[in-house]
Design a protein around this nucleic acid. Structure first.
Lengths: 203, 203, 203, 203
DNA sequence: CATGAATGAGGATTCATTCAT
DNA sequence: GATGAATGAATCCTCATTCAT
């Protein structure tokens, strides 16, 4: 094995170890939150010694940051899905139901609240979150511009920024609803969300 | 001093002590979050010994719960303000700008995220939050029904639930925008929110 | 009211307060032990403010000491009961059954163990306990000498000391049996104790 | 080093750490009692950080329990010593002097009082103590039955239970004498104890 | 690379005691 | 005398992190 090949292998191994840790961290963070989840808990879930985690990540904060980075990437992926559609605006409207239902699913989104709360006092996390948000906004805006041009609607800068913010805002609010009113009537809620989105997109 | 008068004084004193603690807690929670804020930190901010805090509150969790209770009460107060208006629907639309700007103000709302995150794991906090949400929904619904009847719009149960949820959702989403995109263009954002609210209310 | 009369009243009042505290302390010590019983617990049981207890006793240790003093006095009282009997030795033998049963009663004797344990490390308590033990030994020895002279048995110094120690030892051991084997067969146990005492007294 | 070998080493190490803690705890418990001995004090005496003690024992109570378990085991060991003798009853009588002297030695027995006092309030400790007492009684009874059959004495159930209890009672009482009258005349005390034991065993 | 024993600072909480009223 | 609010040192315990193996 050449030195390069070994380094390659080493790097791959390290990467796989990092993934292991992040997957374990997700379980623990979901169960206990960022601060109540202990390194011991995470190391046990990862099937790895606590000491070794420090070969993959410099600190618990680094795990949180990496975890957040990985997690916020989901939003960007969602954006890309729309890009391939023919009538993008209509595709977005048609996707409201699934999107809302997904945001209401308690399997993932409590973590998003944890992330937002952490970002509101941890500058490193805030930077990661804001950067991801920026990228998502850019992608979303590009989609919307394409969609609206097809329907000959205004795409000036102010209009677009408001549109992007308002739509993201509506979707992100769903996570808070999931916490504060878990038993809400999904169908009538979705109908209204869809109507708001439709109106805004085609206005 | 009679026994009754002393009890009165005692009760008042205790209440004032509790308020002192809650005010100090707000500062600390804002700075560090619920869990990173230590009792020592809170007691110092309250100008009171750590031991004495336990004469006012049975535990740190009790402080968090009382703090949350106090905080969520604000939302209910907001609801009551609308009740006195003549054309309620229009009043709500006209209030969107102020409401959004208030939600974007970083002085208060990071705490709401902290509360939501805590509620997603701590059942006691979840109960407080959900109860407050329930009360707010009932008040809001009553307002909307009155407002819509004036305009001869449908007020059937399903419609109303969706309306209430969707509007609250939009407003609560603003808190997440405040964290994730603090520099957003408020004017165009507000214009879109206002348009969404207007459309939904009068639809 | 003359000054003297008032002082008299004051002293009586103080004494009654002290008794109140000691009675309350007994309840608490029995429930929780000397160290786990808090001053707050005792003051509540005594129907008196925690601060006021310090007008009656200088410290918690002083309460323990006074309590111990009061408690060890019981043994001396037991001794005095025998002095009036005609045939003292026989009276002692006849009392074994009641004495053992009393020592097995969990209502009082856990406190004796608490006292002994405290004495083994708190010099002030040790002094109280040892002084009481000395007084009881002297009384007991006087009784035994009178009883044995009646039966023309040896009463030399060495014999008497051994007798006194061995008999007290047997009775005090009962308290430990009560803790370590609460369900023991009382009748056969008592028969053996009685036989040991009878043999030793009349030997 | 194979996994098995390492586990072996790990287990041994852990065991040795536990012993270290128990030895340190003995010093501290002797000096201060179970409750006044702080974990900091114990950890310092054990030459180990306070945090690490919790890798060996789950709580302070667990240390107390393990300590008690280790201590009460001594009694059972004492029992086994007699089993090898030819004339067991005589061996017991001949051992009274050494046994009493051992029980009077202040190096060990204050702890037994501490244990008894703790057992009278702490159910977990009570269970340990009572279980050990049961085992000791069974062993002692077996010894006595064998010894008495050799001398053709009664071994019926009631007689044996009384004998076992009374003899243990006498020995355990010595611990209380050690606390309450540390300067007692050992020789005459022992002579009487011996006479009581002899009478009872051969009666 | 991998372990897990070891650290020690820091957490929430308790409680004997004091003192202004 | 009598109160009970207030103190703050001390308690048990947790946990991120390190390091010898």
């Amino acid at each position: 094995m050449t030195t390069t090949a070994r380094q390659q292998a080493t790097t791959e191994r390290t990467q796989s170890r990092r993934s292991q840790v992040l997957a374990a961290a997700k379980t623990c963070f979901l169960r206990s939150g960022f601060h109540a989840a202990s390194m011991a808990e995470i190391s046990k879930a990862a099937g790895m010694s606590p000491g070794h985690i420090y070969n993959c990540f410099g600190s618990k904060d680094a795990i949180i940051a990496a975890f957040v980075e990985q997690h916020v990437e989901r939003v960007a992926a969602l954006m890309r899905d729309f890009a391939s559609k023919d009538d993008i605006l209509q595709a977005i409207v048609d996707n409201v139901a699934d999107g809302v239902r997904d945001h209401l699913n308690p399997a993932n989104w409590p973590l998003q609240l944890e992330i937002a709360a952490e970002a509101s006092r941890n500058p490193a996390i805030a930077a990661v979150v804001r950067d991801a948000d920026l990228r998502a906004r850019v992608q979303f805006r590009t989609l919307l511009v394409a969609g609206r041009e097809r329907h000959q609607l205004a795409v000036d800068s102010d209009t677009m920024e408001g549109l992007v913010e308002a739509l993201i805002c509506l979707f992100q609010g769903v996570r808070l609803r999931a916490v504060q009113h878990p038993g809400l009537n999904q169908d009538s809620f979705i109908a209204c969300c869809r109507e708001m989105v439709r109106h805004l997109l085609f206005k």
